[in-house]
């Protein structure tokens, strides 16, 4: 079925099998292979993309449900040669090894920073009614939906800390 969305600022229109997930539509139909398939069941976070500014697992979302949505993938973050501040921070802090979870980690970071800026709480928040302060513990809890088997977690934390003021 015909579905229209905006991907990385560009209008896109696809005739979709209703079974096609957003992740497979990106990877197999739109040549946007930066979003990764690690588990295909919402258990790793490698497919994280931003839909209308919110981070989601693209593997568990049927593409036809995204009519009219604004989707941002890892390919849509850099401005030409200039990396997005979160991408630059990941590079600087060596916040990845094999790189397979990395696009998901970066998209998740951007979504997470917005959630924190909007005052959302997390399980690490002691006082649920206080303003959000993005401590290390908060960052770790909020990023726990993105597994990294190479285990670059200390480096990812450092990258997010350094990018947090910029993103």
């Amino acid at each position: 079925m015909k579905t229209h969305f905006t991907i990385n600022g560009q209008a896109a229109s696809l005739d979709l099998d209703p079974r096609t997930t957003l992740l497979d539509a990106l990877r197999e139909r739109l040549d946007l292979k930066g979003s990764k398939k690690g588990c295909d069941h919402g258990q790793c976070g490698a497919c994280t993309v931003l839909v209308n500014g919110q981070r989601i697992n693209a593997c568990l979302s049927l593409a036809v449900t995204h009519e009219g949505d604004e989707i941002t993938t890892i390919e849509g973050l850099a401005q030409g040669e200039a990396l997005h501040p979160v991408q630059a921070a990941f590079l600087e802090h060596d916040a990845f090894q094999c790189g397979y979870c990395t696009p998901g980690q970066i998209c998740s970071t951007i979504g997470m920073l917005k959630e924190a800026a909007d005052g959302w709480a997390s399980l690490a928040t002691d006082d649920l009614t206080a303003d959000t302060v993005l401590t290390d513990e908060e960052i770790r809890e909020r990023m726990s939906g993105n597994l990294c088997r190479c285990s670059a977690y200390p480096q990812i934390l450092a990258a997010i800390r350094s990018a947090g003021g910029l993103a």
Partner: peptide, 11 residues
């Protein structure tokens, strides 16, 4: 920085 780092952070 990693030689292939830019490719990996840009997907």
């Amino acid at each position: 920085d990693r030689y292939e780092g830019r490719l990996k952070v840009t997907g």
